[in-house]
Write a protein that binds this DNA or RNA. Structure first.
Lengths: 342, 342
DNA sequence: TATCAATATGACAGCGCTATCATATATCCT
DNA sequence: AGGATATATGATAGCGCTGTCATATTGATA
């Protein structure tokens, strides 16, 4: 990349101060909405800023001040749709606040995760971090952030920790709701595909499934519960096993939509009538859910809203720990129905 | 967000220079891989850097130097999957280069698009920009970047411009290939759903479709060609119209996978046997394509690779304009087959 | 009117780097 | 050997802001 010849005619705070007839410091005060600036002066400065189309240099602000006007979003998630929602939500809130967002993909299984994140902080001096699952549960990361005294918020499906702020939804309740829906339709043999083990939500959803069965007096059958990894192919694999059972389930509840899509594919491949011979439910309400056939019954996870709320929490942070819980919603589509008579 | 008490014990280039027994400037030279540093000195400095876990402050570098070690990726695309691929590709190359990536969602239809981007550049002093479709074709943006002398690369499906570097795939050829595939299967009545009009690729794909028909001596029927907007519901709408025709097409080629998913849904809803009664083809090979039923025949667009190549081009830029074209690939799955006998 | 706090503004240092220029040493040629 | 280069290193001045401290200016209070 060619060295860009910035022939020093940048508009700086000095240019503005000259134009407005005040000191640099006063311009700085206006820019930062500090107290003790008279209305007249403020107006004059704002005028000059607008006329000159002045935009302060983030670099200089970071170097001189304590704030960097940047926060980082750290994620390691293989669902593009989920990440996109998270990014969009956080970004929206950042824009309102005039703060820049650095998106930082990472790898929770990397041995030097903590030092990578430490490096990021040193380099960019971000003044806050938002963590999305499963990085929310990487102890080394939390430690690193605490050691460096960097405020952070966890977007954490289902889990709250006393030490750090978080936003979450009630995964247990959501899975319970979905399972109860299937039971209400008349299903008694309900398969369940667990999510990836490094996501805290996976346990929560499993627990919700069991709780609903329990309450309804439906016996829990370990053979109906299989591990998955939140991806399409693990959904296919689990579905094949479930449908090969002597008494296969009449409904399968997958811990996310991708795995549910895998179940649908297997069902189609086997020529099953859907939803008559097999009901399928997912979790997340990704774009995928409504584009499948039959359209997928699922749980709408308020991802974008969670992300937005997380950023709000970060900006409002004053040292204390806070938690926000956002409501989920059962989205009933055509992939679930009463089981066919035996 | 609480003001982070940076109790000034930051490791700086000065700390390192003291430890290594050289001047600050020499440390800087090593950091920037400049010439004229002896092997012995370089080793000593690198040692000190490692020992102290030193990471230079991006802010100070930007302020002092000409480079900012940051580039921006500007996009406005409603396909999370596409954006994710682009981000991942660019990010990978940036990481190799030690450059930070700012992701900048934008809105091509916004009247102050140019000034937003101007502001971004002023604020962050990015030393290069990567544009993804459809921002690639927003004239105001290109002008703004040129005016400010910021190097940029366009990730531009199908279009090359003499004035700016770009990476692209051959959309015309790809659409031609797919259409030819359908013709080879025996289809003569082939529906086509055009992409969103603000994407340059849309025209290209349409042209490829026509060219293939032409070459094969299949007559072009305007009634088989409908507008779309690259989203699921426009695919559904177009499919409904096409399948309501007196002599409906035996195959439908949609300009992207989302619209193809819409076509599949309509076909299922109408109880058509797939692919016997209707072949469906998409474009992009998003994750969706293989998760639908039947799995979708589509064109694999090398999105990630395009993004990676775009970043490479940007870093290698020395003022001259360059173009790279990457190969696409026909992905044949179960959604296309010979038409059923009439 | 004198005294104090609250309000309003500015001068100036310095954040952590890189650019520029000066200087010192090694290597080459005729 | 004696200059002319190429190589290697350092001293110093900013980059564009914000923090700190000093200095008005006002209004409120006794």
């Amino acid at each position: 990349m060619k060295a860009d010849d910035k022939t020093n005619n940048r508009t700086t705070i000095k240019t503005v101060s000259l134009a407005a007839g005040v000191s640099m410091k006063t311009v700085s005060r206006v820019l930062n909405k500090e107290r003790y600036v008279s209305e007249r002066t403020r107006a004059r400065v704002e005028r000059a800023v607008a006329d000159l189309q002045f935009t302060p240099s983030v670099a200089a602000r970071i170097l001189a001040g304590k704030r960097s006007y940047q926060i980082a979003l750290i994620y390691d998630n293989h669902s593009p749709h989920y990440i996109h929602q998270i990014q969009t939500g956080v970004w929206a809130r950042c824009t309102e606040e005039g703060v820049r967002l650095l998106a930082q993909p990472s790898d929770v299984s990397s041995p030097n995760l903590a030092s990578e994140i430490g490096g990021l902080i040193d380099q960019t001096q971000v003044d806050g971090v938002i963590l999305s699952s499963p990085v929310t549960d990487a102890a080394v990361v939390l430690q690193e952030l605490e050691r460096r005294n960097v405020p952070y918020v966890r977007i954490s499906p289902g889990t709250e920790q006393a030490r750090a702020s978080s936003v979450s939804m009630d995964d247990v309740k959501a899975a319970d709701d979905m399972t109860s829906h299937l039971i209400a339709l008349g299903h008694r043999k309900i398969g369940f595909i667990i999510g990836h083990t490094n996501h805290a939500a996976s346990d929560q959803r499993l627990f919700g499934y069991r709780r609903a069965l329990d309450r309804a007096g439906v016996s829990y059958e370990p053979k109906y519960v299989l591990p998955g990894a939140f991806d399409f192919s693990s959904g296919e694999a689990a579905a094949d096993i479930l449908l090969d059972l002597q008494t296969p389930p009449t409904a399968i509840f997958a811990s996310n939509d991708d795995m549910a899509a895998g179940v649908l594919t297997v069902a189609h491949r086997r020529g099953l009538a859907l939803p008559g011979q097999l009901s399928v439910a997912g979790f997340d309400d990704t774009a995928l859910a409504s584009q499948l056939w039959p359209p997928l019954t699922t749980v709408r996870q308020p991802t974008r809203e969670l992300a937005y709320a997380a950023a709000s929490l970060l900006f409002a942070m004053r040292g204390e720990v806070a938690h926000r819980r956002l409501p989920h919603e059962l989205v009933l589509r055509a992939s679930t129905a009463a089981p066919a008579k035996a």
